[in-house]
Write a protein that binds this DNA or RNA. Structure first.
Lengths: 252, 252
DNA sequence: AGAAGTTCTTGTCACCACGACCATAACTGT
DNA sequence: ACAGTTATGGTCGTGGTGACAAGAACTTCT
Protein backbone atom coordinates (compact mmCIF):
# COMPACT_ATOMS: atom_id res chain seq x y z
CA UNK A 1 0.00 0.00 0.00
CA UNK A 2 1.58 3.22 -1.11
CA UNK A 3 0.90 6.70 0.21
CA UNK A 4 -0.16 8.97 -2.58
CA UNK A 5 1.44 12.38 -2.41
CA UNK A 6 -0.34 14.79 -4.67
CA UNK A 7 -2.01 18.13 -4.32
CA UNK A 8 -5.31 17.37 -2.69
CA UNK A 9 -8.42 18.09 -4.69
CA UNK A 10 -10.69 20.65 -3.07
CA UNK A 11 -12.25 19.11 -0.01
CA UNK A 12 -9.78 16.40 0.81
CA UNK A 13 -9.31 16.28 4.57
CA UNK A 14 -5.97 17.29 5.98
CA UNK A 15 -4.24 15.74 8.94
CA UNK A 16 -6.48 12.73 9.05
CA UNK A 17 -3.49 10.55 9.71
CA UNK A 18 0.16 10.68 8.78
CA UNK A 19 -0.90 10.20 5.18
CA UNK A 20 -2.69 12.19 2.58
CA UNK A 21 -5.03 10.27 0.37
CA UNK A 22 -7.69 11.01 -2.24
CA UNK A 23 -11.20 11.06 -0.77
CA UNK A 24 -14.04 9.15 -2.35
CA UNK A 25 -17.65 8.59 -1.61
CA UNK A 26 -18.45 4.89 -1.49
CA UNK A 27 -21.91 3.72 -2.40
CA UNK A 28 -23.64 0.39 -2.78
CA UNK A 29 -26.18 -0.40 -5.47
CA UNK A 30 -28.52 -3.34 -5.53
CA UNK A 31 -30.03 -5.19 -8.48
CA UNK A 32 -33.12 -7.15 -7.44
CA UNK A 33 -34.47 -9.69 -9.93
CA UNK A 34 -37.68 -11.63 -9.66
CA UNK A 35 -40.11 -13.57 -11.81
CA UNK A 36 -43.56 -12.16 -12.47
CA UNK A 37 -45.82 -13.65 -15.11
CA UNK A 38 -43.05 -15.85 -16.48
CA UNK A 39 -41.01 -12.75 -17.12
CA UNK A 40 -37.83 -11.55 -15.48
CA UNK A 41 -38.39 -8.27 -13.65
CA UNK A 42 -36.11 -5.69 -12.08
CA UNK A 43 -36.68 -3.45 -9.06
CA UNK A 44 -36.14 0.26 -9.83
CA UNK A 45 -36.67 3.53 -7.97
CA UNK A 46 -37.49 6.84 -9.55
CA UNK A 47 -35.02 9.48 -8.45
CA UNK A 48 -36.49 12.47 -6.62
CA UNK A 49 -33.36 14.62 -6.63
CA UNK A 50 -30.72 15.90 -9.00
CA UNK A 51 -28.77 14.64 -10.73
CA UNK A 52 -30.90 12.52 -13.02
CA UNK A 53 -34.09 13.59 -11.18
CA UNK A 54 -37.12 11.77 -12.54
CA UNK A 55 -35.08 9.01 -14.12
CA UNK A 56 -35.10 5.44 -12.93
CA UNK A 57 -32.20 3.91 -11.02
CA UNK A 58 -31.40 0.81 -9.08
CA UNK A 59 -31.70 1.27 -5.31
CA UNK A 60 -28.54 2.17 -3.45
CA UNK A 61 -26.75 4.79 -1.43
CA UNK A 62 -23.77 5.76 0.65
CA UNK A 63 -21.93 3.28 2.79
CA UNK A 64 -21.44 4.36 6.38
CA UNK A 65 -17.99 4.04 7.98
CA UNK A 66 -19.39 1.84 10.73
CA UNK A 67 -20.94 -0.85 8.57
CA UNK A 68 -19.74 -3.49 6.14
CA UNK A 69 -20.50 -3.33 2.45
CA UNK A 70 -22.97 -6.19 2.81
CA UNK A 71 -24.78 -4.39 5.60
CA UNK A 72 -24.89 -1.16 3.63
CA UNK A 73 -26.43 -2.91 0.66
CA UNK A 74 -29.15 -4.53 2.76
CA UNK A 75 -29.87 -1.28 4.58
CA UNK A 76 -30.10 0.91 1.50
CA UNK A 77 -32.30 -1.60 -0.27
CA UNK A 78 -34.76 -1.67 2.60
CA UNK A 79 -34.68 2.10 3.13
CA UNK A 80 -35.49 2.86 -0.47
CA UNK A 81 -37.86 0.07 -1.39
CA UNK A 82 -38.92 -1.75 1.77
CA UNK A 83 -37.54 -4.99 0.38
CA UNK A 84 -35.52 -7.25 2.65
CA UNK A 85 -32.96 -9.56 1.09
CA UNK A 86 -29.95 -9.40 3.37
CA UNK A 87 -28.92 -13.02 3.22
CA UNK A 88 -29.44 -13.31 -0.52
CA UNK A 89 -27.37 -10.35 -1.69
CA UNK A 90 -24.31 -11.27 -3.70
CA UNK A 91 -21.59 -8.79 -4.51
CA UNK A 92 -20.60 -8.94 -8.14
CA UNK A 93 -18.68 -5.81 -9.15
CA UNK A 94 -17.26 -2.41 -8.34
CA UNK A 95 -17.50 0.64 -10.56
CA UNK A 96 -15.25 3.66 -10.24
CA UNK A 97 -14.85 5.45 -13.54
CA UNK A 98 -13.97 9.11 -12.88
CA UNK A 99 -17.03 10.58 -14.56
CA UNK A 100 -19.64 8.10 -13.46
CA UNK A 101 -21.11 10.64 -11.01
CA UNK A 102 -21.14 14.27 -12.16
CA UNK A 103 -20.97 15.58 -8.60
CA UNK A 104 -17.90 13.94 -7.19
CA UNK A 105 -15.69 10.88 -7.05
CA UNK A 106 -17.93 7.95 -6.31
CA UNK A 107 -16.97 4.31 -6.24
CA UNK A 108 -19.91 1.96 -6.03
CA UNK A 109 -20.05 -1.69 -5.10
CA UNK A 110 -22.86 -3.58 -6.81
CA UNK A 111 -24.96 -6.41 -5.43
CA UNK A 112 -27.51 -8.70 -7.01
CA UNK A 113 -30.17 -10.98 -5.60
CA UNK A 114 -32.87 -13.10 -7.11
CA UNK A 115 -36.09 -13.29 -5.12
CA UNK A 116 -39.04 -15.57 -5.51
CA UNK A 117 -41.23 -12.91 -3.89
CA UNK A 118 -40.19 -9.30 -3.32
CA UNK A 119 -43.10 -8.76 -0.95
CA UNK A 120 -44.52 -5.28 -0.46
CA UNK A 121 -42.65 -2.51 -2.23
CA UNK A 122 -42.63 0.84 -0.42
CA UNK A 123 -40.85 3.81 -1.95
CA UNK A 124 -38.48 5.53 0.47
CA UNK A 125 -38.52 9.20 1.34
CA UNK A 126 -36.10 10.32 -1.36
CA UNK A 127 -37.57 8.22 -4.13
CA UNK A 128 -40.65 9.31 -6.01
CA UNK A 129 -41.64 5.76 -6.74
CA UNK A 130 -40.38 2.22 -6.60
CA UNK A 131 -41.64 -0.64 -8.70
CA UNK A 132 -40.73 -3.58 -10.92
CA UNK A 133 -39.89 -3.26 -14.61
CA UNK A 134 -39.43 -6.08 -17.12
CA UNK A 135 -35.71 -6.51 -17.70
CA UNK A 136 -36.29 -6.74 -21.42
CA UNK A 137 -37.63 -3.17 -21.41
CA UNK A 138 -34.57 -2.01 -19.52
CA UNK A 139 -31.83 -3.69 -21.49
CA UNK A 140 -33.56 -2.70 -24.74
CA UNK A 141 -33.31 0.93 -23.65
CA UNK A 142 -37.03 1.51 -23.27
CA UNK A 143 -36.42 2.62 -19.68
CA UNK A 144 -33.65 5.15 -19.30
CA UNK A 145 -31.46 4.60 -16.29
CA UNK A 146 -29.43 7.12 -14.29
CA UNK A 147 -25.64 7.08 -14.02
CA UNK A 148 -24.03 3.92 -15.42
CA UNK A 149 -26.79 1.78 -14.00
CA UNK A 150 -27.59 0.20 -17.34
CA UNK A 151 -24.11 -1.24 -17.44
CA UNK A 152 -24.46 -2.47 -13.88
CA UNK A 153 -27.78 -4.13 -14.67
CA UNK A 154 -26.31 -5.84 -17.72
CA UNK A 155 -23.42 -7.16 -15.67
CA UNK A 156 -25.80 -8.37 -12.98
CA UNK A 157 -27.84 -10.36 -15.47
CA UNK A 158 -24.70 -11.83 -16.94
CA UNK A 159 -23.67 -12.87 -13.48
CA UNK A 160 -26.99 -14.52 -12.70
CA UNK A 161 -26.99 -16.26 -16.05
CA UNK A 162 -23.62 -17.90 -15.54
CA UNK A 163 -24.31 -18.61 -11.87
CA UNK A 164 -27.40 -20.50 -12.89
CA UNK A 165 -25.40 -22.35 -15.50
CA UNK A 166 -22.70 -23.44 -13.10
CA UNK A 167 -24.33 -23.95 -9.74
CA UNK A 168 -27.88 -24.47 -10.92
CA UNK A 169 -29.24 -22.39 -8.08
CA UNK A 170 -32.64 -21.62 -9.53
CA UNK A 171 -34.62 -22.41 -6.41
CA UNK A 172 -33.86 -18.90 -5.19
CA UNK A 173 -36.40 -17.64 -7.70
CA UNK A 174 -39.27 -19.83 -6.67
CA UNK A 175 -41.15 -20.41 -3.44
CA UNK A 176 -40.32 -22.91 -0.73
CA UNK A 177 -42.41 -25.48 -2.57
CA UNK A 178 -42.74 -25.36 -6.34
CA UNK A 179 -43.65 -27.32 -9.41
CA UNK A 180 -41.12 -28.32 -12.01
CA UNK A 181 -42.89 -26.10 -14.52
CA UNK A 182 -42.20 -23.07 -12.33
CA UNK A 183 -38.58 -24.02 -11.99
CA UNK A 184 -38.30 -24.60 -15.70
CA UNK A 185 -39.80 -21.18 -16.40
CA UNK A 186 -36.95 -19.63 -14.43
CA UNK A 187 -34.31 -21.20 -16.62
CA UNK A 188 -36.18 -20.34 -19.78
CA UNK A 189 -36.59 -16.72 -18.69
CA UNK A 190 -33.03 -16.18 -17.57
CA UNK A 191 -31.40 -17.32 -20.77
CA UNK A 192 -34.24 -17.34 -23.30
CA UNK A 193 -34.32 -21.01 -24.19
CA UNK A 194 -36.98 -23.67 -24.44
CA UNK A 195 -36.45 -26.77 -22.37
CA UNK A 196 -38.18 -30.08 -22.87
CA UNK A 197 -40.32 -30.65 -19.80
CA UNK A 198 -39.74 -34.39 -19.80
CA UNK A 199 -35.97 -34.11 -20.06
CA UNK A 200 -35.93 -31.33 -17.51
CA UNK A 201 -37.67 -33.60 -15.04
CA UNK A 202 -35.30 -36.42 -15.73
CA UNK A 203 -32.15 -34.35 -15.31
CA UNK A 204 -33.32 -33.22 -11.89
CA UNK A 205 -34.48 -36.67 -10.89
CA UNK A 206 -31.22 -38.43 -11.74
CA UNK A 207 -29.08 -35.96 -9.81
CA UNK A 208 -29.77 -36.98 -6.25
CA UNK A 209 -30.48 -34.18 -3.82
CA UNK A 210 -31.48 -31.36 -6.14
CA UNK A 211 -35.19 -31.41 -5.61
CA UNK A 212 -37.20 -33.47 -3.16
CA UNK A 213 -40.78 -34.50 -3.89
CA UNK A 214 -43.20 -33.53 -1.16
CA UNK A 215 -45.87 -36.02 -2.17
CA UNK A 216 -48.47 -33.28 -2.46
CA UNK A 217 -49.78 -31.83 -5.69
CA UNK A 218 -50.62 -28.30 -6.73
CA UNK A 219 -54.05 -27.49 -8.19
CA UNK A 220 -54.28 -27.40 -11.95
CA UNK A 221 -53.83 -24.13 -13.69
CA UNK A 222 -56.52 -22.11 -15.45
CA UNK A 223 -56.16 -24.17 -18.61
CA UNK A 224 -56.57 -27.47 -16.86
CA UNK A 225 -54.10 -30.27 -17.15
CA UNK A 226 -52.86 -32.88 -14.76
CA UNK A 227 -52.08 -31.43 -11.32
CA UNK A 228 -48.31 -31.11 -11.02
CA UNK A 229 -46.23 -32.57 -8.24
CA UNK A 230 -44.87 -30.22 -5.58
CA UNK A 231 -41.15 -30.21 -4.80
CA UNK A 232 -38.89 -28.50 -2.35
CA UNK A 233 -35.23 -27.62 -2.78
CA UNK A 234 -32.67 -30.26 -1.91
CA UNK A 235 -29.51 -29.59 0.03
CA UNK A 236 -27.36 -29.94 -3.08
CA UNK A 237 -27.44 -26.22 -3.81
CA UNK A 238 -27.63 -24.63 -0.42
CA UNK A 239 -24.87 -22.06 -0.61
CA UNK A 240 -22.29 -22.18 -3.32
CA UNK A 241 -21.61 -25.86 -3.12
CA UNK A 242 -19.92 -27.13 -6.26
CA UNK A 243 -22.19 -29.19 -8.44
CA UNK A 244 -20.22 -30.18 -11.49
CA UNK A 245 -16.98 -31.83 -10.58
CA UNK A 246 -14.14 -31.69 -13.09
CA UNK A 247 -13.32 -34.92 -14.85
CA UNK A 248 -10.62 -36.86 -13.10
CA UNK A 249 -9.02 -40.22 -12.93
CA UNK A 250 -8.35 -42.36 -9.92
CA UNK A 251 -4.98 -43.96 -10.28
CA UNK A 252 -1.40 -42.73 -10.80
CA UNK B 1 -28.93 7.17 -4.53
CA UNK B 2 -29.72 8.80 -1.23
CA UNK B 3 -27.90 11.65 0.45
CA UNK B 4 -26.74 10.64 3.87
CA UNK B 5 -27.32 13.30 6.47
CA UNK B 6 -25.33 12.59 9.57
CA UNK B 7 -22.76 14.36 11.64
CA UNK B 8 -19.61 14.21 9.60
CA UNK B 9 -16.73 12.20 10.97
CA UNK B 10 -13.60 14.28 11.54
CA UNK B 11 -12.13 15.24 8.24
CA UNK B 12 -15.14 15.08 6.00
CA UNK B 13 -15.10 18.01 3.59
CA UNK B 14 -17.75 20.65 3.92
CA UNK B 15 -19.40 22.48 1.07
CA UNK B 16 -18.12 20.08 -1.53
CA UNK B 17 -21.54 19.96 -3.10
CA UNK B 18 -25.05 20.20 -1.77
CA UNK B 19 -24.47 16.91 0.00
CA UNK B 20 -22.49 15.66 2.90
CA UNK B 21 -21.09 12.21 2.58
CA UNK B 22 -18.71 9.93 4.47
CA UNK B 23 -15.19 10.02 3.10
CA UNK B 24 -13.30 6.84 2.28
CA UNK B 25 -9.96 5.96 0.88
CA UNK B 26 -10.29 3.63 -2.08
CA UNK B 27 -7.50 1.22 -2.86
CA UNK B 28 -6.92 -1.55 -5.34
CA UNK B 29 -5.14 -4.81 -4.55
CA UNK B 30 -3.82 -7.29 -7.05
CA UNK B 31 -3.38 -11.05 -6.75
CA UNK B 32 -0.90 -12.36 -9.31
CA UNK B 33 -0.76 -16.12 -9.80
CA UNK B 34 1.74 -18.05 -11.88
CA UNK B 35 3.10 -21.54 -12.28
CA UNK B 36 6.68 -22.26 -11.29
CA UNK B 37 7.97 -25.83 -11.01
CA UNK B 38 4.48 -27.27 -11.41
CA UNK B 39 3.41 -25.29 -8.37
CA UNK B 40 1.02 -22.40 -8.08
CA UNK B 41 2.81 -19.28 -6.89
CA UNK B 42 1.68 -15.88 -5.64
CA UNK B 43 3.33 -12.48 -5.98
CA UNK B 44 3.80 -10.70 -2.64
CA UNK B 45 5.55 -7.55 -1.47
CA UNK B 46 7.10 -7.00 1.93
CA UNK B 47 5.72 -3.87 3.54
CA UNK B 48 8.26 -1.19 4.37
CA UNK B 49 5.96 1.03 6.44
CA UNK B 50 3.50 0.81 9.29
CA UNK B 51 1.04 -0.64 9.76
CA UNK B 52 2.10 -4.25 9.34
CA UNK B 53 5.68 -3.20 8.51
CA UNK B 54 7.78 -6.23 7.60
CA UNK B 55 4.82 -8.41 6.85
CA UNK B 56 3.92 -9.64 3.40
CA UNK B 57 1.03 -8.24 1.42
CA UNK B 58 -0.39 -8.37 -2.06
CA UNK B 59 0.58 -5.36 -4.18
CA UNK B 60 -1.86 -2.47 -4.27
CA UNK B 61 -2.48 1.13 -3.35
CA UNK B 62 -4.70 4.16 -3.56
CA UNK B 63 -6.87 4.84 -6.53
CA UNK B 64 -6.52 8.33 -7.99
CA UNK B 65 -9.62 10.38 -8.80
CA UNK B 66 -8.58 10.71 -12.42
CA UNK B 67 -8.23 7.03 -13.25
CA UNK B 68 -10.50 4.02 -13.47
CA UNK B 69 -10.25 1.11 -11.08
CA UNK B 70 -8.72 -1.03 -13.79
CA UNK B 71 -6.08 1.57 -14.50
CA UNK B 72 -5.29 1.97 -10.81
CA UNK B 73 -4.78 -1.76 -10.43
CA UNK B 74 -2.40 -1.95 -13.37
CA UNK B 75 -0.48 1.11 -12.22
CA UNK B 76 -0.06 0.02 -8.63
CA UNK B 77 1.02 -3.44 -9.67
CA UNK B 78 3.74 -2.08 -11.91
CA UNK B 79 4.86 0.56 -9.42
CA UNK B 80 5.33 -1.92 -6.62
CA UNK B 81 6.60 -4.98 -8.46
CA UNK B 82 7.51 -4.00 -12.00
CA UNK B 83 5.05 -6.55 -13.35
CA UNK B 84 2.80 -5.56 -16.24
CA UNK B 85 -0.53 -7.31 -16.61
CA UNK B 86 -3.00 -4.58 -17.54
CA UNK B 87 -5.09 -6.51 -20.03
CA UNK B 88 -5.22 -9.65 -17.91
CA UNK B 89 -6.46 -8.17 -14.64
CA UNK B 90 -9.91 -9.30 -13.60
CA UNK B 91 -11.84 -7.63 -10.84
CA UNK B 92 -13.35 -10.14 -8.47
CA UNK B 93 -14.36 -8.49 -5.21
CA UNK B 94 -14.57 -5.45 -2.97
CA UNK B 95 -13.73 -5.38 0.72
CA UNK B 96 -14.91 -2.69 3.09
CA UNK B 97 -15.23 -3.98 6.62
CA UNK B 98 -14.87 -1.07 9.07
CA UNK B 99 -11.78 -2.39 10.83
CA UNK B 100 -9.90 -3.81 7.88
CA UNK B 101 -7.40 -0.91 7.99
CA UNK B 102 -6.47 0.36 11.45
CA UNK B 103 -5.72 3.86 10.17
CA UNK B 104 -8.92 4.87 8.46
CA UNK B 105 -11.90 3.84 6.38
CA UNK B 106 -10.55 2.00 3.40
CA UNK B 107 -12.54 0.17 0.76
CA UNK B 108 -10.44 -1.94 -1.55
CA UNK B 109 -11.27 -3.44 -4.90
CA UNK B 110 -9.43 -6.66 -5.62
CA UNK B 111 -8.09 -7.95 -8.92
CA UNK B 112 -6.60 -11.24 -9.98
CA UNK B 113 -4.57 -12.31 -12.97
CA UNK B 114 -2.88 -15.51 -13.98
CA UNK B 115 0.40 -15.09 -15.85
CA UNK B 116 2.46 -17.61 -17.74
CA UNK B 117 5.55 -15.51 -17.07
CA UNK B 118 5.73 -12.66 -14.58
CA UNK B 119 8.99 -11.42 -16.09
CA UNK B 120 11.43 -9.46 -13.98
CA UNK B 121 10.22 -8.58 -10.50
CA UNK B 122 11.47 -5.25 -9.17
CA UNK B 123 10.45 -4.11 -5.70
CA UNK B 124 9.08 -0.55 -5.66
CA UNK B 125 10.34 2.27 -3.46
CA UNK B 126 7.96 1.60 -0.56
CA UNK B 127 8.35 -2.15 -0.55
CA UNK B 128 11.32 -3.84 1.07
CA UNK B 129 11.08 -6.80 -1.26
CA UNK B 130 8.86 -8.40 -3.83
CA UNK B 131 8.88 -12.05 -4.81
CA UNK B 132 6.83 -15.17 -5.45
CA UNK B 133 5.58 -17.49 -2.73
CA UNK B 134 3.94 -20.90 -3.14
CA UNK B 135 0.24 -20.45 -2.57
CA UNK B 136 0.17 -23.56 -0.43
CA UNK B 137 2.50 -21.85 2.05
CA UNK B 138 0.25 -18.82 2.15
CA UNK B 139 -3.13 -20.47 2.54
CA UNK B 140 -1.68 -22.84 5.13
CA UNK B 141 -0.67 -19.80 7.18
CA UNK B 142 3.08 -20.30 6.85
CA UNK B 143 3.36 -16.76 5.46
CA UNK B 144 1.58 -14.15 7.51
CA UNK B 145 -0.23 -11.55 5.44
CA UNK B 146 -1.11 -7.96 6.32
CA UNK B 147 -4.66 -6.63 6.65
CA UNK B 148 -7.33 -9.05 5.41
CA UNK B 149 -5.16 -10.09 2.49
CA UNK B 150 -5.35 -13.77 3.35
CA UNK B 151 -9.09 -13.66 2.81
CA UNK B 152 -8.60 -11.80 -0.45
CA UNK B 153 -6.10 -14.39 -1.66
CA UNK B 154 -8.43 -17.23 -0.77
CA UNK B 155 -11.25 -15.59 -2.69
CA UNK B 156 -8.97 -15.01 -5.68
CA UNK B 157 -8.02 -18.67 -5.86
CA UNK B 158 -11.63 -19.68 -5.59
CA UNK B 159 -12.40 -17.37 -8.45
CA UNK B 160 -9.66 -18.77 -10.66
CA UNK B 161 -10.69 -22.30 -9.84
CA UNK B 162 -14.27 -21.82 -10.94
CA UNK B 163 -13.28 -19.68 -13.90
CA UNK B 164 -11.10 -22.50 -15.13
CA UNK B 165 -13.95 -24.91 -14.60
CA UNK B 166 -16.44 -22.89 -16.59
CA UNK B 167 -14.54 -21.14 -19.34
CA UNK B 168 -11.53 -23.42 -19.51
CA UNK B 169 -9.17 -20.50 -19.88
CA UNK B 170 -5.97 -22.22 -18.88
CA UNK B 171 -3.83 -20.91 -21.71
CA UNK B 172 -3.31 -17.75 -19.66
CA UNK B 173 -0.92 -19.71 -17.48
CA UNK B 174 1.29 -21.08 -20.20
CA UNK B 175 3.42 -19.56 -22.92
CA UNK B 176 2.36 -18.64 -26.42
CA UNK B 177 3.24 -22.16 -27.51
CA UNK B 178 2.92 -25.06 -25.11
CA UNK B 179 2.66 -28.79 -24.83
CA UNK B 180 -0.46 -30.53 -23.65
CA UNK B 181 1.43 -31.77 -20.62
CA UNK B 182 2.09 -28.18 -19.56
CA UNK B 183 -1.54 -27.29 -20.01
CA UNK B 184 -2.62 -30.35 -18.10
CA UNK B 185 -0.27 -29.44 -15.24
CA UNK B 186 -2.14 -26.16 -14.86
CA UNK B 187 -5.44 -27.88 -14.33
CA UNK B 188 -3.95 -30.39 -11.97
CA UNK B 189 -2.26 -27.66 -9.93
CA UNK B 190 -5.24 -25.36 -9.69
CA UNK B 191 -7.63 -27.93 -8.32
CA UNK B 192 -5.45 -30.82 -7.24
CA UNK B 193 -6.69 -33.56 -9.54
CA UNK B 194 -5.04 -36.10 -11.79
CA UNK B 195 -6.17 -36.08 -15.40
CA UNK B 196 -5.65 -38.87 -17.87
CA UNK B 197 -3.32 -37.52 -20.52
CA UNK B 198 -5.00 -39.44 -23.31
CA UNK B 199 -8.48 -38.26 -22.41
CA UNK B 200 -7.23 -34.75 -21.85
CA UNK B 201 -5.84 -34.67 -25.36
CA UNK B 202 -9.01 -36.03 -26.83
CA UNK B 203 -11.30 -33.56 -25.07
CA UNK B 204 -9.25 -30.68 -26.45
CA UNK B 205 -9.01 -32.19 -29.91
CA UNK B 206 -12.74 -32.80 -30.32
CA UNK B 207 -13.65 -29.25 -29.33
CA UNK B 208 -12.69 -27.34 -32.44
CA UNK B 209 -10.77 -24.12 -31.86
CA UNK B 210 -9.42 -24.67 -28.39
CA UNK B 211 -5.86 -25.48 -29.23
CA UNK B 212 -4.15 -25.41 -32.61
CA UNK B 213 -1.23 -27.70 -33.42
CA UNK B 214 1.80 -25.85 -34.70
CA UNK B 215 3.39 -28.88 -36.34
CA UNK B 216 6.58 -28.38 -34.40
CA UNK B 217 7.75 -30.44 -31.45
CA UNK B 218 9.36 -29.51 -28.17
CA UNK B 219 12.57 -31.25 -27.07
CA UNK B 220 12.17 -34.15 -24.71
CA UNK B 221 12.30 -33.51 -21.01
CA UNK B 222 15.05 -34.54 -18.60
CA UNK B 223 13.62 -38.04 -18.25
CA UNK B 224 13.42 -38.66 -21.96
CA UNK B 225 10.24 -39.71 -23.67
CA UNK B 226 8.73 -38.90 -27.01
CA UNK B 227 9.04 -35.22 -27.90
CA UNK B 228 5.64 -33.62 -27.36
CA UNK B 229 3.71 -31.67 -29.96
CA UNK B 230 3.60 -27.90 -29.62
CA UNK B 231 0.24 -26.10 -29.61
CA UNK B 232 -0.94 -22.54 -29.50
CA UNK B 233 -4.19 -21.20 -28.07
CA UNK B 234 -7.23 -21.20 -30.31
CA UNK B 235 -9.66 -18.34 -30.56
CA UNK B 236 -12.31 -20.22 -28.61
CA UNK B 237 -11.25 -18.73 -25.28
CA UNK B 238 -10.03 -15.29 -26.19
CA UNK B 239 -11.97 -13.16 -23.76
CA UNK B 240 -14.86 -14.52 -21.81
CA UNK B 241 -16.59 -16.23 -24.66
CA UNK B 242 -19.09 -18.77 -23.43
CA UNK B 243 -17.96 -22.33 -23.97
CA UNK B 244 -20.61 -24.59 -22.53
CA UNK B 245 -24.05 -23.81 -23.82
CA UNK B 246 -27.08 -24.83 -21.78
CA UNK B 247 -29.10 -27.72 -23.10
CA UNK B 248 -32.02 -26.67 -25.20
CA UNK B 249 -34.57 -27.98 -27.60
CA UNK B 250 -35.47 -26.72 -31.01
CA UNK B 251 -39.20 -26.88 -31.44
CA UNK B 252 -42.09 -25.15 -29.63
C1' DA C 1 24.49 -51.50 -29.72
C1' DG C 2 20.98 -53.28 -27.10
C1' DA C 3 17.94 -53.14 -23.14
C1' DA C 4 15.19 -50.70 -20.14
C1' DG C 5 12.64 -46.79 -18.85
C1' DT C 6 9.96 -42.62 -19.79
C1' DT C 7 6.73 -39.81 -22.21
C1' DC C 8 3.72 -38.90 -25.92
C1' DT C 9 0.08 -40.51 -28.89
C1' DT C 10 -3.51 -43.38 -30.93
C1' DG C 11 -7.16 -46.65 -30.32
C1' DT C 12 -10.89 -49.32 -28.19
C1' DC C 13 -14.73 -50.29 -25.19
C1' DA C 14 -18.46 -49.66 -22.06
C1' DC C 15 -21.29 -46.52 -19.90
C1' DC C 16 -24.18 -42.69 -19.15
C1' DA C 17 -26.20 -38.21 -19.89
C1' DC C 18 -28.82 -35.88 -23.07
C1' DG C 19 -31.87 -34.34 -27.02
C1' DA C 20 -35.87 -35.74 -29.55
C1' DC C 21 -40.08 -37.63 -29.49
C1' DC C 22 -44.14 -40.53 -28.48
C1' DA C 23 -47.69 -42.35 -25.36
C1' DT C 24 -50.44 -42.11 -21.53
C1' DA C 25 -52.44 -40.15 -17.31
C1' DA C 26 -55.10 -36.64 -15.09
C1' DC C 27 -57.56 -32.66 -15.00
C1' DT C 28 -60.32 -28.50 -17.14
C1' DG C 29 -64.12 -26.38 -19.61
C1' DT C 30 -67.93 -26.87 -23.08
C1' DA D 1 -68.97 -37.27 -23.50
C1' DC D 2 -65.47 -34.81 -25.78
C1' DA D 3 -61.77 -31.83 -26.98
C1' DG D 4 -57.98 -29.29 -25.11
C1' DT D 5 -54.12 -28.88 -21.90
C1' DT D 6 -50.58 -30.19 -18.78
C1' DA D 7 -47.84 -33.61 -16.32
C1' DT D 8 -45.31 -37.73 -16.33
C1' DG D 9 -43.04 -41.89 -17.93
C1' DG D 10 -40.63 -44.50 -21.54
C1' DT D 11 -37.78 -45.35 -25.71
C1' DC D 12 -34.12 -44.67 -29.00
C1' DG D 13 -29.98 -42.94 -30.97
C1' DT D 14 -25.98 -40.08 -30.40
C1' DG D 15 -22.03 -38.17 -28.29
C1' DG D 16 -18.98 -37.24 -24.60
C1' DT D 17 -16.22 -39.43 -20.99
C1' DG D 18 -13.53 -42.56 -17.86
C1' DA D 19 -10.64 -46.56 -17.97
C1' DC D 20 -7.32 -48.92 -20.07
C1' DA D 21 -4.26 -51.12 -23.61
C1' DA D 22 -0.85 -50.72 -27.05
C1' DG D 23 2.37 -48.52 -30.00
C1' DA D 24 5.71 -44.66 -31.17
C1' DA D 25 9.66 -41.88 -30.18
C1' DC D 26 13.15 -40.49 -27.41
C1' DT D 27 16.85 -40.82 -23.37
C1' DT D 28 19.74 -43.18 -20.28
C1' DC D 29 21.99 -47.23 -18.49
C1' DT D 30 24.65 -51.47 -19.12
Amino acid sequence: MVVVTRTSPPGVPEGYDPSQYPAFAVTVDVVILTMVDDELQLLLVQRGQAPFAGMWAIPGGFKLPTETLDQAAARELEEETGVRAASLLTQFGAYGDPERDPRMNVVTVAYVAVLRDVGAIAAGTDAAEARLHPVNDVVAGRVELAFDHLRIVRDAIDRVRTDLEVTGVATAFVGSTFTLAELRAVYEAVWGVHLDSANFRRSLATNEGWVIPTGRRAPSGAAGGKPPELFRAGRAWQHGGPIRRPSSTKRK
